[in-house]
Computed example of a mutant assay.
Amino acid sequence: MSLHITTTWLGNMKFESTNPSGHNLFIDAGPENGGNSEGYRPKALMLSALAGCSGLDVASLIKKMKLEVADFKIEIDANLTEEDPKYYDKVGMHFHFSGSDLNEKKLQRAVDLSVEKYCGVMEMFRQFADLKVETHFHNKST
């Protein structure tokens, strides 16, 4: 499967990038790098792609397994190397599930399937970063 993306310079440090979904996004640098902060930073966008890829896997599995989850979020902490070209050498992913009747075993299975089998973005990250994944359950009484 081949994808085509076109990223067009809009002047200064701002770009618009097409996406096969039809929803375009803007990329821009911060003021410290001559931009106006009118778009995503490229490296941070990679982390959003990682969370989104795995999140879609887990959301799909939550639906298939008919699991009750009130809230689900993914937090990522990443370390950039000091020298150019800077890249992420350490990435921590934290899956947070909240609800009154969480099936922790099945939710952990959903996370494991994404991490070990389904998420292609995660596999890409493994090529250059030490990736640690943790799952957190927040059981709320009704």
Rank of each mutant, 00 (worst) to 15 (best):
F72Q: 02
L67N: 00
A70K: 06
V111H: 14
K140T: 00
G39F: 01
S114A: 13
L45N: 12
F137R: 02
L67H: 03
N36E: 11
H136N: 12
G30T: 14
M46A: 14
L56G: 15
V58R: 02
P31F: 01
L50Q: 14
S98Y: 10
L45F: 15
H23F: 05
V115Y: 10
S60E: 06
Y87L: 06
R126S: 07
S37T: 06
G35I: 01
V111K: 09
M124C: 08
K117Q: 05
H96N: 15
L67A: 02
P85Q: 00
Y118Q: 00
V91D: 06
K64A: 12
P42E: 01
K132T: 14
M124W: 08
V58C: 11
A110N: 11
V91P: 05
M93R: 07
H138T: 11
E16F: 01
M124Q: 08
S100R: 07
I76A: 03
S141A: 03
H96A: 09
L102E: 01
N24R: 08
N24C: 13
Y87Q: 13
S2W: 03
E83F: 08
G55N: 06
S54F: 08
D101C: 11
L107E: 04
R109W: 00
Y87G: 07
Y87T: 10
A51R: 11
G120K: 02
S37Q: 00
F128R: 10
M122R: 11
Y88G: 07
F137T: 01
H96M: 08
C53P: 06
F15P: 00
T7V: 12
K117G: 08
Y88A: 06
E32I: 13
E38G: 04
H96S: 00
L3R: 05
G92C: 03
S48C: 15
K140C: 01
G11F: 12
E32P: 04
P85R: 07
K132I: 07
L45S: 10
R126W: 05
G52D: 15
H4N: 14
G39A: 11
H96G: 05
K14I: 00
S141F: 14
M1N: 05
K132Y: 02
I62Y: 00
H94R: 09
M65Y: 14
H94E: 13
H136P: 07
D84C: 05
K117N: 09
F125A: 14
M93D: 04
H94T: 10
F128Y: 02
H136A: 05
V69S: 04
L10D: 00
V91K: 10
E134H: 15
N24F: 01
A70M: 12
L67D: 03
I76L: 15
K105T: 08
K63E: 09
E123D: 13
S54A: 13
Y87E: 08
